Amino acid sequence: MVFSSLFGKRDKPEPAESESLTPESTPKLGLFDRMKQAVTRTRETFSESISSVIALTREVDEASLTSLEPLLLAADIGSATTAIIMENLRQRALRTGIQSGAELKQLLKQELKQILDGVAHPIQHPSTPPEVILMVGVNGTGKTTTTGKLAALFRSQNKTVLLCAADTFRAAAIEQLEVWAQRSDVPIIKTKQGGDPSAALYDACIAAKARNTDILIADTAGRLHTKSDLMKELDKMRRTAEKLVPGAPHQTFLVMDATTGQNGLQQARLFTEAARVTGIVLTKLDGTAKGGIVLAIATELKLPVIYAGVGEKIEDLIPFDSTTFIDSLLE
């Protein structure tokens, strides 16, 4: 096993994914503005379509409600979630006696926020460091890149971070994480490709404890051979971490690609069952016109979105907030 501090001048391979690592010299935006910018494509199709319906609504009746349904489906909210929203809108519209399109829009915003808040829960942090976080997900979702960005986010909060390259299956995954460790200015524990990921995690836990590190983030393999194989490997990693750090892993984040939409939900269900996922990190939210997948995740996976990827730069991973998201989507 090799420990690399990555502070010396050494040639490093470029990241496997085409993401910019150098922050641009532009003014920093607030959380709302960054989220608003990220969901621009979704808002252009979703919000503008809803606005056109609302503009024609003089009286909230079955016809005006029904006209919303295809718009929700087109935003990738999903049939199950859309059915829940439509039923609740009908019941609330009848009960409260709303009359105008503007009132309908506010009611819709309340319904969408209620879905997201219904699965939200405060993150429980351990009283004694390190906090161990496992990053899981299918290859191609941006898992390794997101691991690096998350490390940079924690570093910006003045926390000490250690990365563990436990994806020993995918070619160049270790080298890719090394680049992100260097850019995020954090140390990394690694082994050779094809090595035992649990052994890498073991060494990382020992190192994190010895150095009193605040957060240990482990990037795991994204292969999906069978559910049984996946569960065995993740169970072994969990047992390894728990032996060394009480309560570990404290968080298991499933990295999902927002652009895959409904097609990614089935794979997400498999990881959710196998890995005891505690929250979602949704990548490439800025690259889709169907950001309604956030609501489908809440309804169908019963999990909160904890962080959202809103761009390609290293700092473009932000905490997800339901109010900010809904207000950005439906101005």
Rank of each mutant, 00 (worst) to 15 (best):
V2N: 02
K284N: 14
E59W: 07
E62Y: 04
P304R: 14
M1I: 05
Q37N: 14
L94Q: 14
A218Y: 00
K190H: 08
P130H: 10
T213D: 05
T191S: 13
R155D: 01
M256D: 02
K190P: 03
E44Q: 09
H125G: 08
I326M: 10
T191N: 09
P197C: 03
S328I: 05
F46A: 06
A218S: 06
L65V: 05
S184R: 01
L108D: 00
D185F: 00
A275F: 01
G101T: 03
F32E: 11
V119K: 10
G309M: 09
I77A: 09
A74W: 00
K232Y: 12
A152I: 00
A55I: 08
V39E: 09
A75M: 12
V294C: 02
T240H: 02
D203R: 07
P126Y: 09
T259D: 01
Q110K: 14
R155G: 00
A241R: 04
R211H: 06
Q176E: 12
L303F: 10
G222R: 00
E87M: 07
D316I: 04
V310G: 07
E14Y: 04
P126Q: 05
V255I: 15
F169Y: 14
S52N: 12
A151G: 12
M231T: 14
I188R: 03
G137S: 13
D203A: 14
M135G: 03
P70D: 11
D321P: 05
D196C: 10
P197Q: 04
I84R: 13
D257H: 11
T324A: 14
N263R: 11
Q124W: 00
G195V: 02
V179E: 01
I115C: 11
H125R: 12
A200M: 01
E131I: 00
V2D: 05
T82P: 07
I84Y: 05
P15V: 10
G118T: 13
L108N: 04
Q110S: 14
L89T: 08
L303N: 07
S25Q: 13
R34V: 13
V310F: 10
S67W: 02
I98K: 10
A93E: 10
E300Y: 06
G142L: 03
R239Y: 11
I189K: 07
A55V: 09
G287E: 12
T226G: 10
P126C: 07
S51N: 15
Q251I: 06
E315R: 03
A165Y: 03
F3S: 01
I280N: 01
V39F: 11
V179D: 00
V186Y: 02
R276S: 15
I133M: 02
S156P: 05
E315A: 08
L150G: 06
H250C: 10
K36S: 13
S127R: 11
N88A: 10
F32R: 06
G194A: 05
A210E: 09
A102V: 08
S228I: 05
K190Y: 03
S49C: 03
L282V: 13
A63R: 15
L94D: 13
P319W: 07
L71S: 12
T160N: 11
K28G: 06
I318V: 15
V119C: 10
T26K: 10
A248I: 07
V2Y: 01
P319S: 08
T146D: 04
A274R: 01
L31H: 14
T191L: 03
A102M: 06
H225P: 05
S322T: 09
L150T: 10
E233H: 02
L329S: 09
M237H: 08
